[in-house]
Design a binder for these strands. Structure first.
Lengths: 222, 222
DNA sequence: ATTTTATAAAAAATCGATTATCTTATCTAA
DNA sequence: TTAGATAAGATAATCGATTTTTTATAAAAT
């Protein structure tokens, strides 16, 4: 479930980390906003110490900016950064996908089909689309999982979170998902056929389309 | 006029973060070791809260493993991980170098020459080689600085730290630096000549040679 | 009118103590 | 002996209060 930076949950701080991360990625805080720690304490119903530990981790992860003696801020968004992230995603996920197609075994094939199926069947209206988002993330994670590089997967995940800060700006628009969702299934097909080159090309296009969505949202937002 | 423009005073936790990071990268803790927080408190002369904040950040950064209710451990080393890191370094630093050579301006050229010169002139025996290490890091950082991607630079830095956990195992061996140091200057030359392809090829070789050093040390260590 | 200085309020960071959890040592029963 | 239970000690995590620093406000000065 939460195989993120942190171990399985059981401290007060780890669930807060997850909740804050979700909310930061989901755009529940305004970019550039300074976090009011006391308000967060109230909102998430936790003490100061575990909250600060979570904030420190999120700052190291890049979802917050920490300034000495003046707390934590939500990083600003910029066109330049969005371009940077999208470009890197294309490079890194392309690399990972090619490797995954080489190394992935039968279990991977099954996982992939399952993840794609679950994503298609997801109730988009449920839970404000959170469920769809979770499955979408899971699909992309599954796709590159057997690439053989722990660090590459780590960076990709980090970039996904950053990218989603742009992609998920504004209201939910299920209509856009149509075209992107088709690509998910094409990706599965190419992966199962072990066509690394074609899969990578499609992944390029997929990220590029997502980028256009994110860019439009970013521009509409400002 | 500008009397109020002062750099924020640092917190107790930020210097500890730096010190701990140096010590972790420099191999001052055994891989796999569990950190005794009380001992650290003594050693670094700080309170528990700032220490824990630093540890949390280092865990998110990947220089520590955090396990709920059982504190912080130094990550184990493995041949597989070293290969992974070296491979990724070749991909990412190569990519960054090519881009830096395209975008770097005259200031960059000067910085690069200066960094290379300082590195060559560094007193290797001084401060247990810490000064050389600092300048070495700075040289590689300068080399790729104008690549245009903040996130790429961030990942490269992170990989450098991880790589150095292997490269800096065991006693200092200034002799090995000879060959690598020559490559630094060749890199500068190719960069100034704007020969991206050749520079990237040399960078591949440079990282590969470093990898062999690191691997030898890792194997000698076990 | 703008800048400087002084003061009050707010917020961030840290401390000291407490609570919860893990680890180790010891004991008992099979 | 060994497995399991349990109690004691050690360590991790958290709380509540304190200290430090910043930010906001208002008066004084150029």
């Amino acid at each position: 479930m939460n195989k993120h930076i942190q171990p399985p949950a059981d401290t007060a701080s780890s669930p807060i980390y997850d909740a804050l991360r979700r909310d930061l990625v989901g755009g529940r805080f305004a970019a550039g906003e300074k976090l009011a720690i006391n308000a967060l304490k109230e909102h998430y119903q936790v003490g100061l110490s575990p909250l600060r530990e979570a904030l420190n981790k999120l700052a190291a992860y890049g979802l917050l900016i920490q300034e000495n003696q003046r707390g934590f801020k939500v990083p600003k968004l910029s066109r330049e950064e969005l371009d940077d992230i999208a470009h890197l995603r294309i490079e890194l996920e392309g690399m990972a996908l090619e490797r995954a197609i080489i190394h992935g075994d039968a279990v991977w094939e099954a996982d992939l089909l399952a993840a794609a199926h679950r994503l298609r069947r997801a109730d988009v209206s449920l839970d404000k689309g959170e469920e769809w988002e979770r499955l979408h993330t899971q699909f992309h994670r599954t796709l590159v999982a057997p690439c053989g590089s722990v660090w590459l997967l780590r960076f990709i995940e980090q970039l996904h979170d950053q990218f989603d800060r742009y992609r998920r700006l504004g209201p939910k628009m299920p209509s856009i998902r149509q075209e992107l969702d088709e690509q998910h299934h094409e990706l599965v097909e190419l992966a199962l056929n072990r066509d690394g080159k074609a899969a990578r090309a499609l992944m390029d296009d997929h990220i590029h389309k997502s980028y256009e969505v994110a860019l439009a949202r970013y521009q509409a937002h400002a």
